[in-house]
Simulated scan of single mutants.
Amino acid sequence: MTDTRSDVAVLRLSGELDANTANQLHKLLADLLERPVPRIVVDLNDLKFCDSVGLSAFITAKQVITARGGWLSFAGANQFLSTLLETVGLSKYFAIFPEVDDAIAAAQL
Rank of each mutant, 00 (worst) to 15 (best):
V8D: 05
R68D: 11
N20K: 09
S6P: 02
G15W: 11
P98H: 08
P98N: 14
K62Q: 13
V37A: 07
S6N: 15
F80S: 09
D7A: 10
D101M: 03
D101K: 05
S91N: 15
L81S: 00
I96F: 00
D7L: 10
N78Q: 06
L29W: 09
C50N: 01
S52H: 05
R5W: 11
Q24C: 04
L13R: 00
E99K: 09
L17G: 06
T2P: 02
A105L: 12
A19R: 08
A95H: 08
Q24K: 12
A30G: 04
A67D: 15
E16A: 11
T87P: 05
T83Y: 13
N20P: 01
Q79P: 03
H26A: 11
L84D: 01
D43A: 08
T87Q: 09
C50M: 15
D3C: 07
A19W: 06
A77F: 03
T66I: 10
L44W: 04
M1I: 12
P38R: 12
D31H: 07
R12L: 05
W71F: 15
Y93L: 14
E16L: 07
S56W: 06
K48L: 12
L28K: 09
C50A: 13
T2R: 13
L81M: 13
S6T: 11
S82R: 13
N20R: 12
L13G: 00
A106L: 03
F74W: 04
P36A: 06
L72G: 00
F74Y: 09
D31R: 09
D51A: 07
W71R: 01
L72Q: 01
L109K: 14
L28I: 05
A107D: 15
A61E: 08
D18E: 09
T87Y: 13
L13T: 01
E34V: 04
T21S: 04
G69A: 08
K92M: 06
L90C: 08
A75V: 04
Q63K: 15
N78F: 11
V10F: 09
N23K: 10
E34K: 14
G54M: 01
F97T: 02
L25D: 12
L72V: 08
Y93F: 15
A61C: 10
L81A: 01
N45L: 08
Q63M: 10
L84G: 01
Q79A: 13
D51C: 04
W71S: 01
I104H: 10
A95L: 10
N45C: 09
G70A: 05
D3R: 14
L32W: 02
